[in-house]
């Protein structure tokens, strides 16, 4: 079944690994999915939460202050699948992608609160969640460092998606190693 997929791309289009995001978009489009891509580096997405944004953070419905955040929030509401493409830096997503998580995944957008003040999922329309990444370390070193990007997205963010949401994690070693990427994403 085809679906609407948002690709949040934080590769530098002029840097190494940029082709990884292109390859992911290509595989998804070829499989018939409706793909939308947001490029955080090209768009110069502001890489930190501003004081004004934090002050209204908990005001559901009026906590979106900028056009760049609004565009991402709208794309997120449209999507059924969510794929993050990023270079792993210090065993974590690039700070600009973390800023996207901090600024876009807001109360009223990605989660809410129940009567007891516990977090309630807000992305229950997301039924596929994935990561496509590349980095300077091998599998063992990455496991030993407890891959922060994988934990933040595959675990923390996953808790806010559909109960049956399936996860895909692809680490691409070097150019030419796109077989795993095609194999895993072609099942979306």
């Amino acid at each position: 079944m085809t679906m609407r997929v948002l690709v949040v791309d934080s590769f530098d289009p002029d840097g190494p690994g940029a082709h990884t995001a292109d390859a992911a978009v290509e595989v998804l489009a070829e499989a018939g999915h409706d793909v939308r891509r947001i490029s955080l580096v090209t768009d110069e997405f502001t890489p930190f939460m501003s004081t004004a944004e934090r002050l209204v953070y908990h005001d559901e419905g009026s906590n979106i202050l900028t056009d760049e955040v609004r565009r991402s929030v709208e794309a997120l509401a449209w999507a059924e699948g969510l794929l993050f493409a990023y270079p792993t830096v210090c065993f974590n997503p690039p700070a600009r992608l973390k800023a996207w998580m901090d600024r876009v995944l807001l109360p009223g957008v990605a989660f809410g609160f129940d009567d007891a003040g516990r977090v309630a999922p807000g992305l229950t329309h997301i039924r596929r969640l994935g990561v496509v990444t590349s980095g300077p370390h091998g599998r063992i070193a990455t496991a030993r460092a407890r891959d922060g990007g994988r934990r933040m997205i595959m675990r923390a963010l996953r808790m806010n998606c559909a109960k049956t949401c399936r996860r895909t994690f692809v680490s691409v070693g070097g150019p030419g190693e796109h077989k795993a990427l095609s194999r895993k994403l072609s099942r979306w």
């Binding site: 890489p47 210090c90 974590n92 700070a95 600009r96 800023a99 922060g148």
Partner: peptide, 25 residues
């Protein structure tokens, strides 16, 4: 701690100052 991680601006500092050591470049 936001989304289990450090705020973006702190992660940015770590990646800028410690990135070459952690990623051994």
């Amino acid at each position: 701690i936001w989304w289990g991680g450090l705020p973006a601006q702190l992660l940015a500092w770590i990646q800028r100052v410690l990135g070459p050591s952690i990623d051994r470049t």
